[in-house]
């Protein structure tokens, strides 16, 4: 591609794209090594070419580009061999064809980020069906693949205004299926990272659709067993919402209290962390609405026999801003916690 005269460049580019539609079996790592190397080199050239040349992306190339990408990335993901796969403990199954797949993703990203990229042309090919297939790939066990998918979907969401509502709706469906049906989806954290940037960019006043997403999806997400894998991203989304619209605070706090873990202390520590993040941004006028039910729960945590839970709850008093809120409202807060504090100071084993 580098040496080709400009007149022949587009034809050559087209041929290389078609060449890269050939798929190889990486499970048999000795099979067809020569062919694999030819494709790897061709993909490298394509990445280089789109990344460095201007005026390359002419309209007729768009369908060829999308076809090559689709043929390579859209596939049925292998079933997780270990049904008891614990994302926190076990090593994920990495994608065997990664040597090629990575370059296809890299090429796709360069294509989307090229100054010559035209969404008006690309939207014929990057449509709702394409996006649905892309979202399915977020269930891949390979974190490297999910990282690329996250960046790609973030760019697609940004550049294709007509797809935004559809993407939000499909993410909704993935989360709801995850919460209420399968409790198994590998890309929840990545999707929440994208949603964090979307929430951050919401216009005010918030649309009802967005508030419903908080109430119907983000809060119930706290009830899932594998919360620890995506809690940081989930808490970030919740806090983004409250910074956008503080009137949602009461609903969020009551939702967390409703889903408060009863038997998983690790989750309880996460919930306390999230509560502190919320209190860090809370308006005093909102604090007074939830102080009593909230500090009744904090008091229960202080009395927890699990010392990490008790410690994390007591740690609220190390936060200057929370301290000032409690001081301003000690007539309401003190009665809910003092009895427990006194009892714990005498009886707690640790």
């Amino acid at each position: 591609l580098k040496e080709a005269p400009v007149s022949e460049l587009h034809d050559l580019l087209c041929k290389k794209l078609q060449q890269c539609c050939i798929l190889f079996d990486f499970l048999d790592c000795v099979a067809d090594l020569k062919g694999k190397e030819i494709k790897r080199a061709a993909l490298n050239e394509l990445v280089e070419c789109v990344a460095t040349n201007r005026g390359i992306l002419i309209e007729p190339l768009y369908p060829e580009i999308i076809k090559m990408i689709s043929v390579n990335i859209f596939r049925t993901l292998p079933p997780s061999e270990n049904p008891e796969f614990d994302p926190e403990e076990d090593e994920p199954n990495l994608e065997p064809s990664w040597p090629h797949l990575q370059l296809v993703y890299e090429f796709f990203l360069r294509f989307l980020e090229s100054p010559d990229f035209q969404p008006t042309v690309a939207k014929r090919y990057i449509d709702q069906k394409f996006v649905l297939l892309l979202l399915d790939l977020f269930d891949s066990e390979d974190p490297r693949e999910r990282e690329y998918l996250k960046t790609i979907l973030h760019r697609v969401y940004g550049k294709f205004l007509g797809l935004r509502a559809y993407i939000r709706k499909q993410c909704n469906n993935i989360f709801l299926r995850f919460i209420y049906e399968t409790e198994h989806f590998n890309g929840v954290a990545e999707l929440l990272e994208i949603l964090g940037s979307i929430i951050n960019g919401f216009a005010l006043p918030l649309k009802t659709e967005h508030k419903q997403f908080l109430v119907r999806v983000l809060i119930p997400l706290h009830s899932v067993k594998s919360l620890s894998i995506f809690h940081a991203q989930l808490a970030y989304c919740v806090v983004q919402f409250l910074e956008k619209d503080a009137t949602l605070t009461e609903h969020v706090i009551r939702g967390l209290l409703k889903y408060w873990p009863k038997t998983c202390t690790q989750k309880e520590v996460m919930f306390l962390g999230e509560i502190e993040e919320i209190l860090d941004v809370i308006e005093p006028s909102q604090f007074v609405k939830i102080q009593e039910p909230l500090f009744r729960q904090v008091a229960r945590c202080i009395a927890s026999p699990h010392f990490q839970v008790a410690e994390r709850a007591l740690y609220f008093w190390n936060n200057e801003y929370i301290l000032s809120l409690v001081e301003d409202n000690c007539h309401a807060v003190l009665p809910t916690v003092f009895g427990t504090l006194y009892h714990v100071s005498k009886e707690h084993w640790n």
């Binding site: 996250k150 973030h154 969401y157 940004g158 205004l161 007509g162 935004r164 509502a165 990272e193 994208i194 964090g196 940037s197 979307i198 951050n200 960019g201 919401f202 216009a203 940081a232 991203q233 970030y236 910074e243 993040e277 860090d280 941004v281 200057e320 801003y321 301290l323 000032s324 301003d328």
Partner: peptide
């Protein structure tokens, strides 16, 4: 004397995974 209220903490820095915000656009299809 009126106790000076402690100011709210400055906005905590975005976590490492935060991605650039995408601003909602009124042209988006509902």
């Amino acid at each position: 004397p009126q106790k000076k209220k402690k100011p709210k903490l400055p906005k905590s820095p975005a976590p490492h995974f935060a991605m650039p915000p995408i601003h909602e656009d009124h042209l988006e299809k509902i």
